[in-house]
Design a protein around this nucleic acid. Structure first.
Lengths: 140, 140
DNA sequence: TGTGTATTGTACTAATTGTATCATTGTGTG
DNA sequence: CACACAATGATACAATTAGTACAATACACA
């Protein structure tokens, strides 16, 4: 599955800005299931060339959709429809990210030669001081 | 135990660059004891082929890990997990570095919205799995 | 022991992608 | 008409990944 066609129809006389029309039509195609999460969109240049507009116009539309978390644009790679995972998956990803973060921390600590005891003690201390700092802040 | 499988899961649609995902997952597997010091990693070409990416992308990830002294890449030989070479530092500097490392970790975890309970639980789990992996290795 | 060959990582470059900034155009309003 | 402002275009840039050639090492085998 490379990338699908993404047929957009622009009306250059409608008064609506081009980038708005692109935004609207992509949103509507997503709503209609023509586009699905994970789908790759054409590159800004490819779509721009097909629509006979400047690629900055497409980029502007993509940026708006990106800020709305509808698509994900990645410099050097491309743009994709955002996956909208159900809550339980989100929670799973959340835990995985904590797991990765913790893993990197533990790994780095061990690499530096600290013992399990030292690490867990330092974590306790750090959590404690963090909590105290938070309490102080709450009392302000 | 020559080389192990090293199962990595890439998400080509996530915002993270491929090489970053490789770096993160190797670090995480090391931290969780899935990878251990001395283990040989797949060659850049083998891993690249398995992940269906260009081998330079793997090489870039390896170089980052190498610069962080986490792995050791040797032209013509292969790539290995570093044999925990703790830097020569004074006890004072050593404790300060652990404190700083821990502080960064805790701060980041809180910034990501994790609770104190979640963080400490995950640290316990991570330390536990490391210890288990270590025992397995000792029995070999 | 020497030598050819395969295997491994490295270096440099190119291609493809999105980003940032400013210039130009067009349109409406005083 | 003159100005303001939004939309679009032009240009240069940065990030990511891929292509190609090369160098270091290991290993088989004469």
């Amino acid at each position: 599955m490379a990338e699908k066609k993404l047929t957009l129809l622009l009306d250059f006389h409608s008064g609506l800005p081009i980038y708005t029309q692109i935004v609207n039509q992509i949103q509507s195609q997503l709503a209609n299931g023509i586009l699905k999460p994970g789908d790759q969109l054409p590159t800004v240049r490819a779509l721009a060339s097909e629509l006979r507009v400047n690629f900055n116009t497409v980029a502007r539309a993509y940026r708006i959709l990106d800020e709305a978390r509808i698509i994900s644009t990645q410099q050097g790679r491309g743009t994709y429809i955002t996956e909208i995972p159900p809550p339980e998956v989100t929670e799973k990803l959340r835990r995985e990210s904590l797991s990765e973060l913790t893993g990197r921390f533990i790994g780095e600590a061990f690499r530096l030669g600290f013992s399990e005891r030292e690490v867990s003690q330092m974590v306790r201390d750090s959590l404690k001081s963090w909590k105290e700092a938070k309490n102080v802040k709450d009392e302000e």
